[in-house]
Write a protein that binds this DNA or RNA. Structure first.
Lengths: 249, 249
DNA sequence: CGAGCCGTTGAGGGGATTCAAGCTCAGTGG
DNA sequence: CCACTGAGCTTGAATCCCCTCAACGGCTCG
């Protein structure tokens, strides 16, 4: 069985250390535990499975798993950002969703189902690996965990449906503004967002990379994006909101 | 608290009996039980909650619930077809997903979350009402039910992501063909599919009703849709597949 | 019968694509 | 050192697909 644990690099060796797949996690002091799946568990319930939880580091553009693979683990995003990709029969790549800090990804594995999409790290990303068997065993004894699992799944569904209405509908400019709104939810502490490659923006909005480039350039000129660097930008929240109001009127 | 149980009619009184909301269900002989959520339960486990399960009839275009409502029940689709709608801030309506026979809808209610979308019956539809409290109580004792619930949720997520890649990407003709493929999955026993109003096709594909009309007319001329009636059509599966192959090349 | 909804079709305009050229920048190797 | 290369981004010009606006026909229903 391929992949999944030993992450696959896609780009040329582009900095960042390789994954350190087997570092045992110490969950207690974890600053995202309140957000994460196991937040419903008490320390004493969490303790016995801590040895099974591994902390993983993925470089930007590293694939976490492939569509169709039957994985053996789900992951909690500890920090960073993950995108989900599909390739249509016409060969068109489409990005269908994003997951950030605290989100659960790959939960298909907990049901012994193949992964529905490819998961790719957008930026250097830290994940907690949750082996399927362990989660299933726990969920049997802890109804709260079963409920938390379903809640995560429901959240992902709402994300996906919102993606249809916001990112896949209307004129391209509105779609781009809505995308920025979502990226803003994953901004770093200095308010900078991950700015995808133009081709990737195209794969999110279903436009060509040229159109994506024109959209970014224009928003930069308008001051919605005061600073545009490679793979990173700052967003003027006020102007973004204003631009959206105009676009929706 | 409004709505939800006493279904809301949107169209003028257009035939079909009003909902009969309190008919107790007899689940044992139900022909879709193998498909449905409670398929994981034995008869003896199912028996005590049967009095709580009501069978509902919804006419075409009847709303089952509204987005934002905090409902008290999920529903299994016994027969018929349900669409999920959202309205964007720009006032644009968008249909984000379909659910048919055997599918679970409104599972947000089981988590005490507001419904994420409006659910509307596409055709006369029969539903089984599953009160949230009952399901939750059962799930505590029956891990298999908890698992089944999560599986339904995951299925819905895969539907939604597929909707992004198939129905919301690429040229309008391809999107229309992909939509027909999906409608075909809910065809009646004579191979006829529900053909939405042109405006509704538009809300699914994110095109105008005029474009939707042109797409339908052209597919009819090409023989992909040998018979087009109001709200119903037959599909030539072979020609559909051929047209898709061409569109994807 | 007139009103309203639904569907169809045409003509014209606009937004996104396609095709193309040129730019910056990092990495490579002569 | 610096040409060479390729990836990513930008911009322009022409084309095309879809939207907009409009007119019209069929149908149901008050």
């Amino acid at each position: 069985m391929p992949g999944e644990v030993h992450l696959m690099r896609r780009l040329p060796a582009d900095s960042a250390a390789p994954a350190s797949p087997r570092a045992q996690a110490d969950c207690r002091p974890c600053e995202i535990r309140p957000l994460a799946l196991f937040s419903v568990l008490q320390d004493h319930a969490l303790a016995p499975l801590r040895p099974e939880i591994a902390s993983l580091h993925a470089a930007a553009d590293e694939r976490l798993y492939l569509r169709g693979e039957i994985g053996s683990a789900a992951y909690t995003v500890h920090s960073g950002l993950v995108r989900f990709e599909r390739v249509t029969e016409s060969g068109q790549r489409r990005i269908v969703r994003l997951a950030g800090r605290g989100d659960l990804i790959g939960q298909e594995a907990l049901l012994q189902r193949p992964y529905a999409d490819e998961a790719v790290a957008c930026v250097p990303t830290v994940l907690c690996r949750l082996p399927g068997g362990v989660v299933e065993r726990m969920a049997r004894g802890e109804p709260a965990l079963a409920r938390a699992l379903m809640e995560r799944c429901q959240l992902a569904l709402e994300q996906a449906e919102g993606w249809i209405a916001d990112i896949s509908s209307g004129p391209s400019r509105r779609r781009m503004l809505k995308l920025l709104e979502r990226l803003l939810a994953h901004a770093d502490d200095q308010g900078r967002v991950w700015l995808p490659r133009r081709q990737e923006i195209g794969d999110m909005l279903d436009v060509t990379l040229e159109t994506a480039s024109r959209l970014v350039s224009q928003l930069a000129r308008e001051g919605v994006l005061p600073q545009v660097e490679t793979r990173r930008a700052t967003v003027d929240v006020g102007r973004l909101a204003a631009a959206l109001t105009v676009a929706d009127s």
